[in-house]
């Protein structure tokens, strides 16, 4: 009798264990430690702006970040302090950023010193574009080629090329008033880059259409063209429909970017592109902030509009 009871009990325990433990998910504790973040990407001939925030736990559901407003911040240009203004938790430089200069930041927060230094690249020299080639293709798909030419300077350089389409639409609103709206976005384009040292990974902020890879932003180095003239030809789609009530402009923007800027954008874009893909290796985002997170880096840009 006792034996049969023991057997019954054993069977119950085993069955219970099987029922309650199949693919069970368990909550776990994660070590939560916050860091201070300096975020500042700036461009020559523009004012530098940045903020200092506090990172939050990966488990946090908050949408915003705590802004640090009581930090002791010093920004220097070629070793000399520049004046800063603070407004709404954001810092602004009084003067515009100078191409070729070295900028450094030091922020003291609660006994911790965050620091970073970066050199703003010199400007792109002799940028010109040739838009004379005819639009090719049939009604369904037409594209235009542009030749971009500029001179590479001395030293190792990294470039970013983007094509911005700006359109202004004119219409009459419900009240009968003539009005207009502007719209800007980065146009996708292909590149004849067989000789270029392309830095974009194939998964980088672009898309495949047919057999071609369309870039949203194109990064490359001057490898093979050091101190020479760089030529590249990009092609972008021309949509078959044109609205008479719309003005459309394109700008080719060629930026010389610092290595810090390049690494940050490359890794940040890659992380965001592969976010949610369970088969993708996670991407670590680059940071040049000592004792903290974020980025402090700049670029120099030139553009031509057509």
């Amino acid at each position: 009798m006792i034996k049969s009871k023991v057997v019954q009990l054993a069977v119950c325990i085993i069955l219970s264990a099987i029922v309650f433990s199949c693919e069970k998910e368990i909550e776990m504790k994660l070590d939560e430690s916050n860091s201070y973040v300096i975020n500042s990407l700036f461009s020559a001939d523009s004012i530098m702006s940045f903020d200092i925030t506090e990172s939050k736990s990966v488990l946090s559901n908050r949408f915003d970040y705590d802004t640090i407003t009581n930090a002791e911040v010093i920004v220097t240009k070629n070793g000399s302090p520049i004046s800063l203004n603070q407004q709404g938790g954001k810092y602004f430089s009084s003067d515009v950023i100078e191409a070729g200069a070295t900028y450094a930041i030091e922020a003291k927060i609660s006994g911790l010193t965050l620091s970073a230094e970066t050199k703003i690249p010199s400007k792109v020299q002799n940028l010109s574009i040739d838009t004379s080639s005819a639009i090719i293709g049939d009604y369904g798909f037409r594209e235009k080629k542009i030749r971009i030419t500029f001179d590479d300077g001395e030293g190792k350089s990294y470039y970013k090329v983007s094509l911005v389409q700006k359109s202004i639409s004119y219409y009459t609103d419900y009240n009968g008033i003539e009005t207009s709206s502007e719209n800007e976005y980065n146009e996708y384009f292909t590149v004849d880059g067989s000789r270029l040292d392309l830095i974009n990974s194939t998964d980088d902020f672009g898309t495949v259409f047919g057999d071609d890879f369309y870039y949203n932003e194109l990064y490359f180095s001057d490898l093979g063209f050091e101190n020479q003239t760089i030529n590249l030809v990009i092609s972008f789609p021309i949509y078959s429909y044109e609205y008479s009530y719309e003005d459309k402009f394109y700008s080719v923007i060629v930026s010389k970017v610092s290595e810090d800027y390049l690494l940050y954008n490359q890794t940040k874009n890659q992380q965001q592109y592969t976010s949610g893909d369970p088969f993708a290796q996670p991407t670590l985002v680059y940071s040049n902030i000592n004792n903290g997170l974020g980025i402090f880096a700049g670029i120099s840009s030139e553009f031509v509009t057509f």
Binding site: D31, L41, S46, T53, V58, S60, S255, I295
Partner: peptide
């Protein structure tokens, strides 16, 4: 490889494919 924290994206100058394009 597991994330432990999160922080904001830096505003990108001279780019219209800013920040939140993918993620």
């Amino acid at each position: 490889t597991l994330p432990v924290a999160q922080y904001g994206v830096a505003d990108n100058p001279v780019s219209l494919s800013n920040n939140s394009f993918f993620g």
